[in-house]
Every structure is written in C-alpha cells, then in structure tokens.
Amino acid sequence: MARHTVGSVHELAITESIVDAIVEKIGDGPVAAVRLEIGRLSGVVTDSIRFCFGIVAVGTGLDGARLDIDEPPGRAYCRDCRREFALDDPIMLCDCGSADLDILAGQELRIVSVEVR
C-alpha cells in the first residue's frame, strides 16, 4: 500500500523548539524566511518539519515564513583503516566492516539564520 511517508512525532517537538528559540532571540516581529541545517544523519525528517512548521508557526511572527533547509550529507572517519568517506546510511559502517567511526558531518540540527522584515 502506497503511503505518504512522514516522520515520527518528534519532529513536532523539534519544530516547536525551532519556533521557540527564534521568538526568544528576535521577538514577535514578522519573519520572512528561516534557514535551517538538518543533516542527513540527524534522524529528523525534513518533510515532517515543513508540515509541522505550518502548524506551529501560527500565532507567531513566523507565520507564513519560508523555510529553507540545507541537508548536509554525512561524512565519517574510520579509526581502523584511517580513511574518510561519504556516508548517508544511518547504519554507519566503513567498507572495511568497522563501526568504529568518528562522524564528521551529517548530524547537524541547527538554526542558521532568519530573514526579518
């Protein structure tokens, strides 16, 4: 059965954190756009953030704001074979079979900037 894939409900809490953090920093003034960084290894589904944002932003200065989301790809360093490589799978394994990795990128969950009117 084909179903539209949405993430789990933690995206709602994440979106609430985003809106709260922005309002706390810049107040209730109107916001034209919000830029986020949500890494591909972060465990957060960006489609769900967009869906939740439309709901959570109502009644704040962020209502109707454009959401720009950068999704940095994953990068890891293998401590066994001492190699850096691209990684977009949440099961984090090096080609050599090792799971002993340093994750260098892809786990970002950040508010980068907002455009205020």
Partner: peptide, 11 residues
C-alpha cells in the same frame, strides 16, 4: 528583509 545570524543548535 534583513538577515539575522543565529547559528544555534535546535536542541
């Protein structure tokens, strides 16, 4: 519009 840098972890 004016861009305000926040550079803040969501959590």
């Amino acid at each position: 519009t004016r861009t305000v840098l926040l550079e803040q972890d969501i959590l």
